[in-house]
Design a protein around this nucleic acid. Structure first.
Length: 564
RNA sequence: GCCCUUGUAGUUCAAUGGAUAGAACAGCGCACUCCUAACGCGCCGAUUCAGGUUCGACUCCUGACGAGGGCACCA
């Protein structure tokens, strides 16, 4: 509709100016607002309102069939009001398309989303959980816009953190198969904390760990390889458990160890070509040469080991060779912003095409009000702990009010929804101030509120069934619920915008407004009522709201419970 | 010190350069013989400060002040 209106205005007014067809902030201003008069008045030095009036006359003479009327308002907006029957059509369309409503097929691209780049042998902390939540939502939004999405994760299985953990395992009890995954995970975490602390405080241990790191890279020491393989398997099984709870299935799990050798080759090759240079026995990329704001970073250490930087370059080349994506998005915490600027600049000098297609998206840090976290001291909030905290909160709520109503799966679904919503409701890139009490909210502006709304629509539908009322999309002239109808109609365009702006929060904001409008309606009107001639349409509207809320929740990576 | 990001109700967040800055939580008041109250209704309350650009600025530019992050052998 938005495109149709734009096209229509262009044709009737014979303009190719760059104007906008947008949603007015207030519903009284109609369904669409066109700012063409402001744009043209500036160019031609005319009075904005007068120009808008003259446009209105021309447009009035050639109204599109779905348009009820147009008005000039405010500083010179041309507001467009759609016919009421149009909204009946929207409700009908939603009930016909169901889980497909909101999909746009316009994006014909292969896009790689790389997220949850964990380090194996280290706990998955809440930063990784954030990245997972955002990456999954962006992936789903892209799919709904027609993209062929490749979900992938790139995990650190070589490097100092591995050496630290192996050192720690050697100090502790080595391989310890307790048969209990969660106990093994804790044990590996302890080994990491021990190694990391020793690396900082004990020079002898530091030398030993560096020695282990070399062997991790060359893979010659069978004892070290055994420890590594065991601990890596523990980590990966644990991560996959968490991915499952979170609702992500990766198409490809890639590892740093797979590109370590290539990384050395590439850096050496481009050192010959002058991209990298030697400095204090290390091989570095001198960012300052290309941009004053860039840092100089080490790509190969004086020990001859490739750093994350070099591996990231090799990884990018390898990934492109494997998948030939049109776009590649890498999602990490914003503490890596400047790191990525340097790496992408270096990549641009090695393979401009891939660099051009790659975008680094960052999310903020999850700041706990209880203080800073550190994985070094072991004093961290793991992703798992956060999930469990949320599940416990849901359980508590249920015991107070709804014992026996909610299934175990749905307790998880609600707990995940509370966390995901908190993360997705704000623009990615900014820190989240996380307070366990307040942030894991089940009321108001929250994931569970949306779930509750969807469940409510379902309960109403069941009630209607027992009462013998069935839905009908024919809307009577006297009936009024334009707020909800207009909002339902906007959903596909919100999905589109969420992708172009990489903004999951566009979905959360929209859903809260829709749910809130519906709940107000629910409070004011009896929906299932055999004596009310409007009841069948109200029911159709209710089902349409339920469907759109479900579809929106899907895009956030949130499941709708059966009952709650 | 240099660089990047950022400053919106008491608090946590929204707002493609557009019309009356939108929610939630907290606070105060109301509502429950009716489809699940994780609900609904009302009130209170905000663009850090000083300039500039623009018909129009939370949004763009400059400066001040505050917050977070990054600055070579970690990832």
């Amino acid at each position: 509709m938005q495109d149709a209106i734009k096209q229509w205005v262009k044709e009737i007014l014979g303009t190719d100016a760059d104007f906008a067809v947008e949603y007015p902030a207030v519903l009284e201003h109609g369904d669409y607002a066109v700012n063409i008069a402001m744009v043209e008045a500036k160019k031609e030095g005319k009075n904005t309102r007068e120009l808008a009036e003259s446009y209105k006359e021309k447009l009035d003479a050639n109204l599109l069939p779905d348009i009820e009327k147009i008005e000039v308002a405010g500083p010179g907006f041309i507001n467009i009001f759609l016919k009421k029957e149009f909204f009946g059509k929207t409700v009908g369309e939603i009930l016909e398309k169901r889980g497909e409503y909101g999909k746009n097929k316009t994006l014909n691209k292969k896009i790689s989303y790389e997220y949850t780049n964990t380090n194996v042998l280290k706990p998955m902390h809440i930063g990784h959980l954030m990245g997972n939540v955002i990456g999954e939502s962006l992936s789903r939004i892209a799919e709904w816009n027609g993209a062929d999405v490749l979900r992938n994760t790139y995990q650190g299985d070589v490097g100092l953190h591995i050496a630290k953990t192996i050192w720690g395992l050697q100090q502790l009890e080595g391989i310890k198969d307790s048969g209990n995954l969660s106990a093994d995970v804790t044990y590996v975490g302890e080994a990491y904390a021990k190694g990391a602390a020793a690396y900082e405080d004990d020079e002898l241990a530091q030398a030993e760990i560096k020695e282990i790191n070399k062997k991790v890279y060359d893979g010659t020491d069978t004892e070290i390889e055994k420890l590594k393989d065991w601990a890596k398997d523990v980590s990966l099984r644990h991560f996959r458990e968490l991915y499952k709870i979170l609702g992500t299935t990766f198409d490809d799990e890639m590892f740093e160890s797979e590109v370590a050798e290539d990384a050395l080759t590439i850096v050496n090759e481009y050192k010959e070509k002058g991209i990298f240079e030697e400095s204090d026995d290390a091989i570095v990329f001198n960012g300052k040469k290309y941009d004053e704001a860039l840092h100089t970073r080490v790509f190969v250490t004086s020990q001859g080991v490739p750093t994350y930087e070099a591996k990231d370059i090799a990884h990018a080349l390898r990934k492109y060779k494997k998948y030939h994506f049109d776009e590649s998005l890498i999602i990490t915490a914003n503490e890596q912003d400047e790191y990525f600027k340097v790496v992408l600049t270096a990549l641009a000098h090695i393979n401009p095409e891939i660099a051009e297609k790659t975008t680094h998206i960052s999310h903020g840090m999850l700041k706990l009000t209880t203080g800073k976290m550190s994985s070094r001291t072991g004093n961290i909030i793991t992703g798992e702990a956060l999930l469990e905290q949320s599940f416990a909160g849901v359980q508590e709520k249920i015991q107070e009010e709804k014992e026996g109503l909610v299934s175990t799966d749905d307790v998880q679904n609600i707990g995940v929804a509370a966390i995901k919503y908190t993360i997705l409701k704000q623009a990615p890139g900014r820190d989240i101030i996380f307070d366990f009490e307040k942030s894991l909210s089940f009321e108001g502006d929250s994931g569970p509120y949306l779930q509750y709304t969807a469940v409510r629509t379902k309960a109403i539908k069941e009630k209607a069934k027992t009462e013998g009322v069935s839905h009908n999309v024919e809307r009577s002239e006297s009936f009024g619920a334009q707020t909800i109808e207009r909002m339902l109609h906007r959903f596909p365009e919100v999905v589109k915008r969420a992708h172009t702006e990489l903004a999951p929060q566009a979905i959360t904001t929209y859903l809260i407004e829709l749910a809130s409008a519906f709940n107000t309606f629910y409070g004011a009107e009896k929906i299932v009522d055999k004596d009310d001639v409007n009841s069948p349409y109200k029911l159709a509207l209710t089902e349409a709201v339920g469907q759109v809320v479900r579809n929106g929740l899907y895009l956030l990576g949130i499941k709708t419970p059966e009952k709650m």
